[in-house]
Simulated scan of single mutants.
Amino acid sequence: MELWLTARLPEAQKRRIDDWLSQHPQQAAYWQALQQDQRLLAQLDPVHDERNLDDYALASRHTQPARPWRRWPALPTLAAFALGSLCSALLIPLWTTVPTEPANRPAFVQSALQAHALYSVEVRHPVEVGEQEQAHLLKWLSKRLDRPLAAPDLSGLGFQLLGGRLLPAPDGPAAQLMYQDTGGERITLYIAAAADSQPSSFLFSEHRGVSTFYWVDGHWGYSLSGRIDQARLSQLSSQVYQALVL
């Protein structure tokens, strides 16, 4: 039963996704709902076909896919918006939960997990520079990492920026941005060079109760960590990915 919606994957990867979905009926239901929407949209526009599925695969900033609605001149605006919103909310988060972590996780991931465990429990000094000085914080971290940095807006998913700090990492300095929700739960975004790691889509890891979704893009490693459930962390990670990479 093919519930996956990412087109033209290798057969082994397709089977792995199908096997995983067969063991997670709730996530499989989401995929089925997405398939139903695809069929409904296809009825609205005869030009619509499976090619649009490729446009939502995770891609590096160097291979950003074309916007699918530019291929659909006859597709009503509302339908195009519905598909884009649904794929953003469902396709990326659900794809990332497939457990495909390599045997040896990159060094920056372990550093990110340790940094989260150390600083997320701090009461008085969880960050080095607070969100009140966000412009200064991002300028400082950008200069130290020698690359432009931004703080993704996660307020729509219930998390507000607390601030951040500079940290050491295996391949140079790292930046940690911390967010907190109204219940006091904290997540941290860790960004560091990952010179020896290959580009990847989202992978999931867990260490001593701290979960993280991580990926590598352009020799930079990104990791979002927290003590929250995997589905919620996946949704937050997709939001971060879209803000920083797409």
Results as ranks from 00 to 15, higher is better:
residue 63 T to F: 07
residue 101 E to V: 03
residue 217 D to N: 13
residue 22 S to F: 10
residue 67 R to P: 01
residue 168 P to Q: 15
residue 234 S to G: 07
residue 34 L to P: 03
residue 234 S to I: 00
residue 168 P to W: 13
residue 17 I to M: 15
residue 118 L to Y: 14
residue 66 A to I: 02
residue 28 A to R: 15
residue 78 L to R: 06
residue 24 H to I: 09
residue 169 A to N: 10
residue 245 V to G: 03
residue 2 E to Y: 10
residue 27 Q to I: 14
residue 193 A to S: 15
residue 205 S to P: 01
residue 62 H to Q: 14
residue 115 A to Y: 01
residue 204 F to T: 07
residue 234 S to P: 00
residue 109 V to F: 04
residue 78 L to N: 03
residue 216 V to P: 11
residue 102 P to V: 04
residue 59 A to I: 01
residue 101 E to H: 09
residue 207 H to D: 10
residue 14 K to C: 14
residue 193 A to L: 09
residue 158 G to P: 03
residue 106 P to E: 07
residue 200 S to F: 03
residue 116 H to F: 03
residue 163 G to F: 13
residue 137 L to G: 05
residue 5 L to M: 12
residue 168 P to H: 12
residue 63 T to P: 01
residue 54 D to R: 15
residue 75 L to D: 01
residue 1 M to I: 13
residue 92 I to F: 05
residue 239 Q to A: 14
residue 85 S to A: 11
residue 35 Q to K: 10
residue 159 F to M: 08
residue 112 A to P: 00
residue 144 R to C: 08
residue 24 H to P: 05
residue 9 L to V: 11
residue 14 K to Y: 04
residue 86 L to K: 08
residue 165 R to N: 15
residue 64 Q to N: 05
residue 245 V to L: 04
residue 126 P to S: 11
residue 135 A to F: 04
residue 5 L to D: 13
residue 28 A to F: 02
residue 86 L to S: 12
residue 88 S to N: 08
residue 148 P to F: 07
residue 136 H to N: 04
residue 75 L to F: 00
residue 95 W to L: 10
residue 170 P to A: 15
residue 160 Q to W: 12
residue 215 W to I: 00
residue 228 I to V: 09
residue 207 H to N: 07
residue 153 D to K: 06
residue 153 D to V: 06
residue 177 L to E: 11
residue 231 A to E: 10
residue 88 S to M: 06
residue 70 R to Y: 05
residue 197 S to K: 06
residue 76 P to C: 01
residue 65 P to I: 02
residue 201 S to P: 07
